[in-house]
Write a protein that binds this DNA or RNA. Sequence first.
DNA 1: CGCCCTGTTGGGGA
DNA 2: ATCCCCAACAGGGC
Length: 259
Amino acid sequence: MGSRIEQLKILDPRWCEPQRPSTVSKAVKGRKICELGRRGKYIFLELEGEAYLVMHLRMTGTLLYGTSVEPAHTRVQMTLEGGSTLLFVDPRRFGTGQVFSDRVELEQFFEFRLGMEPFAETFTADHFVSLTRGSRTAIKAFLLDQRKVAGVGNIYADEALFRARIHPAHPAGRIKRERLELLHGAVLDALAAGIEARGATIDDFRHVDGARGSFQDRFLVHRRADKPCPECETTIVKTRVAQRGTYFCPNCQRPPRSR
DNA sequence: CGCCCTGTTGGGGA
DNA sequence: ATCCCCAACAGGGC
């Protein structure tokens, strides 16, 4: 980082909707990159003179730095000082980008859609438990709601629920405090496992190439349908919760007693 | 070959 | 508050 953005070419205008490509490039061009930041699943470039380029990779987006070839599905190309390039590649075109011209706007954007960072000191078990009070939604949908806890994705929700032995469809507000405290820790453990598998650390999310072994090999239940549970050998089943593929062990993760 | 389903996600409308 | 559909594409099963 630290280099200047010489050019920002948006090949797919949908990337920055509803902002116009010209608006975005104009706001970004010629500015120096001060910092690379992250909030939840959003990644952003902090630019000199109060400007922020906020991006989301969604399902298939990738940021590529310093490649000589331009892969298929390149949506945005950024030319940096010295001629190196930063590419936003995204086959499925769900990824997004937009600019904010001041810190307050940026904070409001995040405030509106994101809850606490799971690794923040303030994200305590008590905080987590209090969030669930009165919620009748399935615990998995609850975990996937970015306004509750920022950054928990479909895989991590499954993994955390398995570790805490909670059925994904269990209504969040009906889970015993003790179990929710377990889940709080399980979310942190599942996330930490994912970070570790990618060769990153909690404080530095930028390492992607240092991945140690296959990321998928770390899954305990996710995408393990018809395979034995690592705890009890019971066959892992696949269902649908919150419109997402959901994997769990029907023996370890018992459904709530119906009343 | 065509059709159908699935998916590391989030926003908007019902 | 909650649920459902949708965006756009690739890949696999039938």
